[in-house]
Amino acid sequence: MRGASRKWRVALALVLIVPLAGACKKKSGRPGEGGAGAAGLGEEGLGGSSLERSKRGLGPEEGGILGDVHFAYDSYELDGSARDVLARNVDWLRQNSRAKVELEGHCDSRGTIEYNLALGAKRAKSVKDYLSSQGIAADRVSTISYGKELPLCQEESEPCWARNRRVHSVVLGQ
């Protein structure tokens, strides 16, 4: 786990400079813009798996180099806006052909824990299948489900639920 953490820290240097306070808001950074040269954060503010970040007290990250893909309630289908985000993610993955990515499936708070773990796995699989269909090699893409265990926000409201129903992409190195 520690080795993986170091890889993620390497990725930090490549991430757009985004104020830490903005980590819980939608980011404007589009895939492809986070090129080398954006180094300098140096802090453990960005990147890393949602669990590693939570261990460090940072909480899960929203967006990042690759955009988050959102879902309807109890669904793992990719809608139009999900495909738009994924098209940009695919571009970035093509341009950064050595980058590997871990897809994290997340769910909102409504529903029971184990079912949401299974649902998160389905969501990550949907994204992996899409990337695969666009020619991104399967061995560059791993998946994990966090179910509803690591939410971005805690409010019981549709805007918060919608943010939490997502696949977050963690770039593991380039």
Binding site: E114, L117, A118, A121, K122, A124, K125, S126, K128, D129, T143, I144, S145
Partner: peptide
């Protein structure tokens, strides 16, 4: 794959396990 949950049988000799392989549990 990922192991999502498990349960011991009443006599303790077996386990029921949910395993997710490639997005299918």
């Amino acid at each position: 794959g990922q192991v999502l949950d498990g349960a011991w049988s009443p006599d303790g000799s077996k386990l029921l396990v949910t395993r997710d392989e490639g997005g299918n549990s």
